[in-house]
Amino acid sequence: MATTEAARPIAVATTPHRRTRWRHVLTGSVVPRVILIVSCLVFLAPFYWMVVSALKTNTELAQFPPSLIPGAWAFNNFPDAINYIPFGLYTFNSLVITVGATIGAVLSNTLVAYGFSRIQWPGRNALFYLCVATIFLPYPVILVALFDIFGRLPSFGIQGAKSWVDTFLPLIVPAFFGNPFYIFLMRQFMLGIPKELSDAAKVDGASELQTFWRVILPLTRPAVIVVLILAAVAAWNEFLLPLLYLQSNDKYPLAVGLIFFTSEHDVSYNLLMAASTLIVLPVVIIFLVAQRFFIEGITVGGVKG
């Protein structure tokens, strides 16, 4: 399309089609820009409103019409929110779960993707299609059964629980068994690495594990970073699973801990928004720093983990 438009000025120079040219500028860049800028405002509004509400006093928050910029900047909402719930403890819990699940995701998905892409074995493609097909199944289907299964697995006293329920294990361990979306993403990447590299390594006497570790893994680094980031953000953002599995207040991650802000009759939405802002902040920072990895991740597949 771009070249079609670029070729146009020549036509304009020879025949006086000023009107057509003007129309082309309008439809080619003015109208799209208007649509895009308005949409950007809409997409940014929730984030903006969260931060602005976090900086308002409770009285100002309840005013109509709502102010677009806080009148009196209530910065003390942030320390107040941190003191309202055990914020430090919940941050620690969130970090443990996120780090654990991310390590699991990176380890398992690289290994599995290697097996699905760099080795030629009978039945490989059939199993891979089976793996990808499970992306479409809604996870809640197995929620009840998994809860019951984890409730019967001994935890050997981890986190003072009898079974896996009320420990971080159900939130971390499954990550070590791969995720079909990440496997798909990484396999696509590994398929792009020339086969000759593996062959050369094997001629030099490298075993399959050595080929994986020394040749393929270093070349897969961009895909590993994509999976690392997506898995970390997904674990940090997860709400339903910790809500189900964790029963003691002191084991909650931040996502579930926010519930305490709504537990009283009078909800302090400004404190809730302040706490939400703090939870969202690391995600936004990671996004700003590693934007291209996020975009690479979705244009391969198009879903979040």
Binding site: F239, L272, S276, V284, F294, I298
Partner: peptide, 14 residues
């Protein structure tokens, strides 16, 4: 893309 990576629970509270 930004809202897609923000946690659904936080967006819902907003």
């Amino acid at each position: 893309y930004l809202p897609s990576i923000l946690p659904v629970f936080a967006i819902s509270f907003v």
